[in-house]
Design a protein around this nucleic acid. Structure first.
Length: 582
DNA sequence: GCCGTTTTCGGCCCGACTGTTTTCAGTCG
């Protein structure tokens, strides 16, 4: 998402990165302060440039010094502290810090004692066996770093994997682990469980009384290419696709604590541990316990741990320290959107679309099996090359839908279409024909490289059209492969409120569009949300689960999700909003 | 660098694994 403070966020990220080197530790208090400041800037709604130094310090996480830097950025276009650090640590040197296993302390010694300033220097020093001359370093370290450099492109510390790639791998590993006779429970945790759109690695927690046996079997799984570390309770491996997987094993009564601990986020857990400390307790991966006596207070389930800390259980996708702890303390936590809340799917394709794989009959039958009480068929509008559908074909489809409707009395079938938003906001067909349809979603399928102003205009114009009920996959992004269109998000959300146009959460893993930070930004606005699968095959109707998690991650109140509403309420809403727009 | 019904100083989350240090520092998550 592009926002007014993006450049500032990037600068603070760099400031934190450079300060890790300057302080010699990623846990240095100054580093954490900069990271907190970046988080505060990132989650702040509205333009910071209008705020004075004093007003800036009112924001949680921003003190006097950070406020000064922010003002300097807006007034002078730079932060001199960053410039100074950049001189001290040039990019080629910072690049070295991305090598796994090489931390700031060793890195600075390599520079000061061996005059190593970049990857080329490091490679030379390793082949000359210079590193082992340093106290505390040896041949093993040279070997380890040499390998790390070789596979750096594949598994550098910064490399992130799209959720669409990581989630299936994690699910396969968890199910393979769960099938072992020694394993009682298995769960993937970490950023994947929080449903972040990209992940650095996969964290898996297993409960077992026989950790050694489980570890030995795990490192021999077919998908494991390389073993990075192998202990009794913790093992790290690389999969054949280069993804790092960390496995932790605890006893069954510690499973909840371990899942909580390894799900994070770091910021969420720090706050939780501070809460534990305030009560004279200790919170770690084995449980919540009394700091003095060591007596365990809660450990078996996450629910018990949150309750002991006087919090309602926070769903994993919300654990980012975005206000969820304060909400949970006040017993006012935004409820999670649950799969069973969703009563219909409002964006599905059939084989009538060139890219659809299942027939109308198959899609309708599968939707009925899921217990839906309404379903909108939305094949591609005619403007989409190859896959679009003419109005004659849609009129024929209408007849088929009417026949099918008789066979599924419990499910209301809507005939809709997925319109293409043209470069200037134009739509398929003519308005009279679009009005014949029960439900229209409209999305961007072309012209991804216009500037932000033009992109915003085309979306706003589409939303003003009386026949557009929802905007599908807001930015058109494909996570990890295609950036979304540039948009003025606040203007789009404002227009969505004005025109009562719903914003879709597209549940396809490569899309997850609108992004959770866009949803988070809309949390206090009266924006209607719809969660859709964009299924092109019956099996893709199951994606709805991901849509619910994405909504939860964006703090979307279930009451604002139109397809969680009972059928009558939903149909009335469609009718009313169309009347209003006309 | 931030923060404060323990407030303007002195705190700031916790533990496993590795390598080479015979008692622990560095790195990572």
């Amino acid at each position: 998402m592009s926002g007014p403070n993006d450049a500032l966020v990037a600068l603070f990220r760099e400031l934190a990165e450079l300060t890790v080197l300057d302080e010699g530790s990623p846990n240095a208090f100054r580093v954490r302060a900069y990271e907190n400041a970046r988080e505060a800037i990132q989650t702040h709604r509205g333009d910071l440039s209008a705020l004075s130094e004093r007003e800036l310090t009112q924001i949680d996480g921003i003190g006097k010094s950070t406020a000064k830097k922010i003002r300097e950025f807006f007034d002078a276009g730079k932060i001199s502290k960053v410039d100074k650090l950049r001189e001290k640590y040039p990019p080629a040197f910072v690049e070295l810090s991305k090598i796994p296993g090489l931390g700031p302390k060793t890195l600075l010694r390599l520079r000061d004692e061996l005059d190593i300033h970049n990857v080329v220097d490091l490679r030379a020093a390793i082949s000359d066996q210079k590193l082992r001359e340093l106290k505390g370093l040896g041949a093993k370290m040279e070997e380890k770093l040499s390998q790390a450099i070789d596979r750096m492109g594949l598994t550098g510390k910064d490399k992130r994997t799209p959720i669409a790639e990581a989630l299936p791998i994690a699910r396969a590993l968890v199910s393979e682990l769960a099938s072992l006779p020694e394993v009682e429970h298995a769960q993937y945790c970490g950023s994947l469980r929080r449903f972040r759109e990209t992940v650095a690695d996969i964290d898996i927690v297993v409960a077992s009384e026989k950790p050694v046996e489980v570890m030995d079997k795990f490192v021999n799984f077919a998908g494991v290419r390389d073993v990075i570390g192998h202990g009794e309770t913790k093992t790290s491996v690389l999969t054949s696709s280069g993804l790092q997987v960390d496995l932790r094993i605890v006893e069954a009564h510690q499973f909840g604590a371990a899942c909580q601990y390894f799900t994070g986020s770091k910021a969420h857990n720090i706050k939780l541990r501070q809460r534990a400390m305030d009560r004279g307790w200790l919170l770690n991966e084995y449980g919540l316990s009394d700091a003095e006596s060591g007596k365990v207070i809660a450990s078996e389930t996450e629910q018990e741990i949150y309750e002991a800390l006087e919090l309602t259980l926070v769903p994993p996708p919300m654990r980012e320290d975005h206000g969820e702890i304060e909400q949970a303390q006040a017993k006012a936590l935004t409820p999670a959107v649950k799969l069973e809340d969703l009563k219909g799917d409002l964006h599905v394709h059939t084989s009538l679309s060139g890219d659809g794989k299942s027939s109308l009959e198959e899609i309708v039958a599968s939707a009925a099996e899921r217990g839906y009480t309404y379903l909108a068929i939305t094949d591609h509008g005619e403007d989409l090359a190859l896959n679009g559908v003419s109005c004659e074909k849609l009129r024929e489809q209408r007849k088929q839908i009417d026949v099918l409707a008789g066979q599924y009395p419990k499910m209301r079938l809507l005939q809709g279409v997925e319109l293409n938003i043209g470069p200037e906001g134009g739509l398929d067909y003519d308005e009279a024909f679009r009005r014949e349809l029960d439900w229209c979603v409209a999305g961007v399928h072309s012209h991804f490289d216009l500037d932000a102003k033009l992109q915003t205009q085309r979306i706003l114009r589409a939303m003003e059209d009386p026949t557009v009920d929802a905007i599908a996959h807001l930015t058109g992004r494909k996570i990890g492969s295609r950036p979304g269109i540039e948009l003025d998000i606040d203007a789009v959300l404002q227009k969505a409120v004005e025109t009562r146009t719903a914003i879709e959460i597209n549940a396809a893993l490569p899309r997850l569009d609108a992004a959770s930070d866009v949803l988070f930004r809309a949390r206090d606005l009266d924006v209607t949300i719809v969660i859709n699968t964009d299924a092109h095959h019956t099996r893709e109707l199951a994606r709805m689960e991901w849509g619910a998690l994405q909504a939860t991650r964006g703090f979307v109140d279930p009451a604002r999700v139109a397809n969680s509403w009972p059928r009558k309420k939903f149909l009335d809403w469609v009718e009313n909003r169309r009347a209003l727009k006309s």
